[in-house]
Design a binder for these strands. Structure first.
Lengths: 214, 214
DNA sequence: GGGATTACGATACTATACGTCTCGATTTGT
DNA sequence: ACAAATCGAGACGTATAGTATCGTAATCCC
């Protein structure tokens, strides 16, 4: 099909340093097509949002991307790492600095909900969670990604601490679990939809706590 | 193999009323073996905790239970409802009434964590969550179960409200999401283990809120 | 420029598993 | 006795993961 696909080649950052994701990256012969790489990831995300993780087939990805199966397996040892890499391109929290912790959290959660959690793409999340329970290797692949995706949330807490708005000894990890947890449970475990307007109430409850005497 | 398996027949409660779970329950001929039914569910739970949901095979269950595949498919239309019914037998929250909301929540969460969440069986949870994202029917099967499993938690909130310990207009559903959510996220999404001693801090944070000025 | 090397898309192949079906034997109701 | 529905066992068709092999195309090294 196309021609002229050399590009600056910044994507496969580990080059031939044998990164953990590449199946093997030789240094002679025809180089791997960056076009095919992109097409595979795009097709993966497409199909992921259409049929979900469990119904995603490698053959389907190959066909949609217009590549052979070998071209996929040459890059990823199995379906799982492929989905993980595609997952890494999905929208995450975006940093918003409104000046107050409450404003930051509300804005970021709302944005994340609308941009990702409310789309069919969000189903990748529980699928990968299920998989990691019996595949520790997957956990190691995902954890850096997950931390990065949540980083803006942690940053908001740290800004609040620097401002003196929040005590310095508040456990930021636990706090962000308290923000994210209820949303995840409602969406993925209980199958509830969350209207964007609901995030304000949820953030407020997490910030002020359940305890409120009559 | 065995003999004498009639029993009081309390398990298949809907009898021949065509409940939503039985594939079809005729009223003539040889009755279905209650022994086989139990053996199938036991084998399902065994294998579920050993290999997880995605690696669970119906053939494996049949072999482990010592029954034919037809005996399984005669009772459950597919692997999914079988796992759901097995899920229904798993330990849930157990009601504890200590006299205070904080005491109730800490005791129940700790008990649930030790009895279920810290065991390999807990992996059924994210697996079913993943599946329901693309299978609304599964959601309908699970939701009553999930509500029932969480009922003791809601009851504790309602007791606190009746006692005047908690304002009557607190959203109990949201509150219990705030208790359960962080645990679920840590366990299933982030792959963290939770030491039983950590539940106290988590409950306290949910009760008093993140906001604590410097 | 030419040869070695590797990737390309396509497709045949093996192995596994779901869900259906049939088998002879068994257990019930009438 | 006879009909009906069960039992465990396993063959069968379909689908998919992952491997291997095809002839062709791109790039590196000499």
């Amino acid at each position: 099909m196309g021609s002229g696909e050399h590009s600056a080649g910044g994507v496969s950052g580990d080059a031939n340093g044998r990164g953990p994701e590449a199946v093997g990256t030789p240094s002679a012969g025809r180089p791997r097509s960056e076009e095919a790489h992109q097409a595979i990831l795009d097709a993966t995300l497409d199909l992921l949002s259409e049929v979900g993780f469990s119904a995603l087939t490698v053959e389907g990805v190959a066909s949609r991307a217009g590549v052979g199966k070998a071209t996929i397996y040459r890059r990823w040892p199995s379906k799982l790492p492929l989905v993980v890499e595609a997952f890494g391109r999905l929208p995450a929290f975006e940093d918003v600095d409104t000046g107050s912790l409450e404003g930051d959290l509300k804005a970021m959660l709302r944005q994340y909900l609308e941009n990702f959690l409310a789309t069919p793409l969000a189903t990748v999340y529980p699928s990968l969670a299920a998989e990691r329970s019996h595949n520790p290797e997957l956990g190691q692949l995902m954890d850096p990604l997950l931390r990065g995706r949540r980083r803006p949330l942690d940053a908001a807490f740290e800004r609040a601490q620097a401002r003196g708005e929040l005590a310095a000894d508040v456990d930021v990890e636990m706090a962000s679990d308290l923000i994210v947890g209820p949303v995840a449970v409602r969406l993925f475990f209980r199958g509830t939809t969350i209207h964007p307007d609901m995030v304000d109430g949820m953030v407020e409850l997490a910030l002020q706590g359940i305890r409120r005497p009559a």
